Amino acid sequence: MTRSNFSTISGEAKDRPAGLQPLLERAGGKSILDIGTFNGLIPYEFAKSDPRVIHGIDFYEEGIRAARTIFESCYLDSGFFIYDLSFGRDRFKSDFEGKLLQSYDIVLLLAIYHKLVRQMSQKDLHELMDYFIGLSDQYIAARTPDMGPLDELIRRQGFELVYFDGFNKALAPLHIYEKIRKER
């Protein structure tokens, strides 16, 4: 069995925004939720487009502290939260009641799905991903080595693939989806 080049998605910091340009260009005035924020570099790229709000969640405490420090000088509505997503959807919803918006224009699921696969049952993971996907009113960006299951969840909620970037070999391909229907 050969090990995937994307068993852990890292790449250099300069590589992480690869493929996001179409969303970065549309981020002005938008609300953004970044699931798996890491250290805030991706949200910072979005901050340059003057979004309305940016929220980020990650279990990596040091990274969230870095993101908070970066955004202290951005002067935009932002919040970054340390949280273990493997607790599942119901606990997440309970713990974040009133802390997040009811919906976001852009939801980022970059290099998070494949990490949670190893920590949660498929049922619990798909409930959690369904919840995050359901928070998006307009766009989802996803990056994971095996997009099959996540792609199915995203499409089931009325999204269509509108952009694909598989050119950066340091990272798994990026998929951008746009909501084409409001009802499930």
Rank of each mutant, 00 (worst) to 15 (best):
F6P: 04
A27C: 09
G36L: 06
L33K: 10
D15Q: 09
Q21Y: 08
G11I: 00
T37W: 03
G29F: 13
L23E: 07
I9R: 01
L23S: 01
S4F: 11
K30L: 07
L24M: 05
E12T: 11
K14F: 11
P17W: 02
S31P: 02
P22S: 08
S7P: 03
R16I: 04
G36A: 10
A13W: 06
S7C: 09
A27E: 07
Q21G: 07
S4A: 11
G11H: 04
F6M: 07
E12P: 01
A27V: 05
G11Y: 03
G19S: 06
G29D: 12
D34E: 13
R16Y: 04
K14V: 15
G28I: 04
L23W: 00
E12C: 01
F6D: 08
L20G: 00
Q21T: 09
R26G: 05
L33I: 05
I35Q: 10
R16C: 00
I32R: 10
L23C: 11
R16W: 00
G36Q: 09
I35A: 11
Q21K: 02
S7M: 12
P17R: 01
A18I: 03
S10M: 12
S4N: 14
G28F: 12
G36T: 06
A18L: 01
S4L: 10
T8Y: 14
G28R: 14
A27L: 05
L24S: 10
L20W: 03
S4V: 09
T37E: 10
R26P: 04
P22A: 04
L33G: 06
L33M: 13
N5T: 11
D15P: 06
Q21V: 03
A13I: 11
E12F: 12
G28E: 15
P22T: 02
E25Q: 14
G19E: 01
F6C: 05
G36S: 03
L33D: 13
L23Q: 10
Q21P: 04
S10D: 07
S31F: 09
S7L: 13
A13H: 06
D34R: 11
T37F: 06
L23V: 09
L24D: 03
I32K: 06
P22L: 05
K14R: 14
E25I: 09
F6G: 05
G19R: 05
